Amino acid sequence: STVKVRLGHLEVTLHNVSEEDVRELRELWKNGADEEDLRRWLEEWKK
């Protein structure tokens, strides 16, 4: 499914993403990950 995730002022649209992935991303964000960390996660996730 396609999910729009809003993290601060960063809005990311993920395609074919699982609930688990979204949860993981939100956890990262809650734990103080900055945009760099999130971008890195997204790069990994896209592979």
Rank of each mutant, 00 (worst) to 15 (best):
S1C: 13
S1Y: 15
S1Q: 14
S1M: 15
S1V: 14
T2G: 03
T2C: 08
T2K: 04
T2R: 03
T2M: 07
V3L: 07
V3K: 02
K4L: 10
K4T: 15
K4E: 06
K4H: 13
K4W: 03
K4M: 08
K4R: 11
V5I: 15
V5R: 00
V5K: 00
V5L: 15
V5S: 00
V5H: 01
V5G: 00
R6I: 15
R6T: 15
R6G: 05
R6M: 15
R6A: 13
L7W: 09
L7F: 14
L7H: 03
L7V: 14
L7I: 15
L7G: 01
L7Y: 07
L7T: 02
L7R: 02
L7S: 01
L7C: 06
L7P: 01
L7N: 01
G8D: 06
G8S: 03
G8R: 02
H9S: 14
H9R: 12
H9G: 12
H9C: 12
H9D: 15
H9I: 11
H9W: 09
L10R: 05
L10N: 06
L10G: 04
L10A: 05
L10M: 12
L10Q: 11
L10C: 09
L10D: 10
E11D: 07
E11K: 03
E11S: 10
E11T: 14
E11G: 02
E11M: 13
E11A: 05
V12M: 09
V12L: 12
V12H: 04
V12I: 14
V12Q: 02
V12E: 03
V12S: 01
V12F: 15
T13H: 05
T13V: 13
T13W: 08
T13R: 02
T13L: 06
T13I: 14
L14R: 00
L14M: 05
L14K: 00
H15W: 09
H15P: 02
H15T: 11
H15A: 05
H15C: 04
H15S: 06
H15Y: 14
N16R: 03
N16S: 05
N16V: 02
N16T: 02
N16M: 04
N16F: 07
N16D: 07
V17R: 01
S18G: 07
S18D: 07
E19D: 15
E19L: 10
E19Q: 12
E19M: 10
E19R: 09
E19W: 10
E19F: 08
E19T: 10
E19K: 10
E20C: 07
E20I: 07
E20K: 15
E20R: 14
E20D: 13
E20P: 05
E20W: 08
D21P: 01
D21N: 09
D21M: 10
D21I: 06
V22Q: 09
V22N: 02
V22H: 07
V22W: 08
V22I: 14
V22M: 12
V22P: 00
V22D: 02
V22R: 06
R23T: 11
R23N: 12
R23P: 01
R23E: 12
E24D: 09
E24T: 12
E24H: 10
E24S: 14
L25K: 00
L25E: 00
L25T: 00
L25S: 00
L25Y: 03
L25Q: 00
L25F: 05
L25A: 01
L25R: 00
R26G: 07
R26Q: 14
R26H: 14
R26I: 14
R26E: 15
E27G: 04
E27C: 09
E27L: 09
E27H: 07
E27D: 11
L28T: 02
L28Y: 05
L28C: 04
L28V: 04
L28P: 00
L28A: 03
L28M: 12
W29Y: 14
W29R: 05
W29L: 15
W29T: 13
W29K: 07
W29G: 04
K30C: 05
K30P: 02
K30W: 06
N31I: 05
N31Y: 06
N31S: 13
N31K: 11
N31L: 09
N31A: 09
G32Q: 06
G32P: 02
G32V: 04
G32D: 07
G32F: 05
G32S: 06
G32L: 06
A33I: 08
A33P: 07
A33H: 06
A33G: 09
A33R: 04
A33D: 03
A33T: 05
A33L: 06
A33C: 04
D34G: 14
D34C: 03
D34R: 13
D34M: 10
D34I: 09
D34W: 04
E35Q: 08
E35V: 12
E35N: 05
E35K: 06
E35S: 07
E35F: 08
E35M: 09
E35R: 05
E36A: 12
E36H: 12
E36K: 11
E36I: 10
D37E: 15
D37P: 03
D37R: 14
D37C: 05
D37V: 14
D37F: 07
D37Q: 14
D37W: 05
D37A: 15
L38H: 01
L38N: 00
L38Y: 05
L38T: 02
L38Q: 01
L38F: 09
L38C: 02
R39G: 05
R39Q: 09
R39E: 07
R39A: 10
R39W: 12
R39F: 11
R39K: 12
R40D: 05
R40I: 10
R40Q: 12
R40S: 10
R40A: 12
R40F: 06
R40Y: 07
R40W: 05
R40T: 08
W41M: 02
W41S: 01
W41L: 03
W41D: 00
W41I: 03
W41Y: 03
L42A: 03
L42E: 01
L42W: 06
L42C: 05
L42I: 15
L42V: 15
L42H: 03
E43A: 09
E43Y: 07
E43F: 07
E43K: 07
E43W: 07
E44Q: 11
E44V: 07
E44G: 05
E44K: 13
E44D: 12
E44I: 08
E44S: 10
W45S: 03
W45F: 10
W45N: 04
W45H: 11
W45V: 07
W45I: 06
W45P: 02
K46C: 09
K46T: 13
K46D: 10
K46A: 13
K46M: 15
K46L: 15
K46Q: 14
K47D: 08
K47T: 11
K47S: 13
K47Y: 08
K47R: 10
K47P: 08
K47M: 12
K47V: 10
K47E: 10
K47L: 13
